[in-house]
Design a protein around this nucleic acid. Structure first.
Lengths: 250, 250
DNA sequence: CATAAATCAATCATTTTTGTTCAAATAAAT
DNA sequence: ATTTATTTGAACAAAAATGATTGATTTATG
């Protein structure tokens, strides 16, 4: 195992959980406690993390901070599974839109080596895309501080100059009669626009979003294909009558 | 097996997985460890990869890990001084443009609590701006992978919809007869446009840039005010005949 | 506050990787 | 065919990284 690889894993774990014990990291990397400790010292030198008694935590900016929901590894594997399936849909030469959000960021992680053009309005997604060597376009506009998403008139104007083969949209609620909904009206408009500009649109959402509703309507169910997991959700039947639902295994 | 062929395979593997051990590469190419090692040395000379203990990694980690560069940089205090002075020029309610780059990022760090609107084409600068609670607009466009700067037609279009009170531009060369120059022609156009859109433009550059020239012309000396340090630079006299030069103390 | 448990920094022996040298193998030139 | 470069693989000592151990330090618990 390469040192750089270990460092990457450590930072990855930290990004996902927010903090980690030396033992956890030792197990995750297969390296000894001593080595992990040395790694943590090095990474702290580089301001990549903060060392605490027993392990390390990440310096978190507002939107990096994982919610309680995201911290559970159950949820994490679910998102990864969904993202892996979503990425498998992308073909060579595709021009795709990746919405801002943690699930779509997971999709970006799965794109390494693929030949495609990605457009995103999510500031965090950019980092992942570039790190994986993807040709990346960012939509301009006003930045929403807490989520790092581009919103507002400029952003709408910006996205309208593109056309997409496929778009991958994150969402807060999927409801049989209210359709797709999200919290912020400005973000809702962006999502809706992206869907309209795409040949095919996919909603990537973990099972907790099914049956929920949020403040702002984005689109009707039939406008997108849903990629999710857990088909035991009671409401999924009525939803799958209205649109295609791809259920991935965990 | 041809040498060029091996090099291609090595870079291919690196592109796919981001890093590789010497053993992996030996296996992938069929060549011996010694040969791989020699290959890696050569490829590193050409800036095609970064050699690490045990193997090699991609070279694009450069801007993903700015903390590494900044820490090792001797010009750190110089840049901070320059940035502090630059930030002091900004008044309440100003609308400013911050170029992509490490020095301008330092400027962003000095803006905490100020009441202003910031526009930037630098992806890394965004994080700093948001962390300091600044209303931030990002210009859209294609992302240049190694610097994280927005370039291209879309970016030009994007920046042209703004007007700035002050702009702060990073630069590679300041020369008495060649003016301001930078490496990438696309970035040069962006900088020039920003300058044209601003009431006042400031070049923020440490002393190492004075007397240097790079590939692409950005603007004439008189178009901007220079903020730098070390007025002992021999070429500074002739430069200061043509434009205002603010020399900050360290 | 005192004790026990856990974690830490420092050190050392071991393993792995590296740079270098040298001879064999291969390619190019006469 | 013979000589001359160039490349390759192997050998080996020096350097770096690793894992285990120890005593000191910190944190938790009664």
């Amino acid at each position: 195992m390469l040192t750089a690889e270990r460092h990457f894993i450590i930072l990855q774990v930290l990004k996902e959980q927010g903090n980690a014990t030396v033992h956890e990291l030792s197990e995750a990397t297969g390296a000894s406690i001593s080595t992990i400790r040395r790694d943590l010292v090095q990474l702290e030198e580089l301001d990549k993390l903060k060392r605490v008694h027993g392990g390390a935590t990440q310096y978190r900016t507002k939107w990096t901070e994982p919610s309680l929901n995201e911290k559970s590894s159950q949820n994490l594997t679910e998102k990864t599974s969904i993202a892996t399936y979503a990425a498998s849909l992308i073909e060579d030469g595709d021009c795709i839109f990746l919405d801002a959000g943690t699930t779509t960021q997971k999709v970006a992680e799965q794109l390494r080596g693929k030949n495609l053009i990605a457009v995103t309005n999510g500031y965090q997604v950019v980092e992942t895309l570039l790190a994986n060597g993807i040709t990346t376009y960012l939509i301009g506009g006003k930045l929403k501080p807490n989520t790092g998403a581009m919103i507002g008139g400029k952003a709408l104007e910006g996205i309208s100059t593109y056309r997409f083969d496929k778009s991958f949209i994150g969402i807060n609620g999927i409801h049989e009669s209210f359709g797709y909904t999200t919290a912020d009206p400005e973000e809702a408009i962006m999502k809706k626009t992206a869907i309209d500009l795409s040949k095919e649109s996919y909603i990537v959402a973990d099972h907790s979003k099914i049956g929920e509703t949020a403040f702002s309507k984005v689109a009707e169910l039939h406008e997108c294909t849903i990629i999710t997991s857990h088909f035991t959700e009671p409401n999924l039947d009525k939803i799958s009558e209205q649109t295609t639902v791809e259920v991935v295994k965990l």
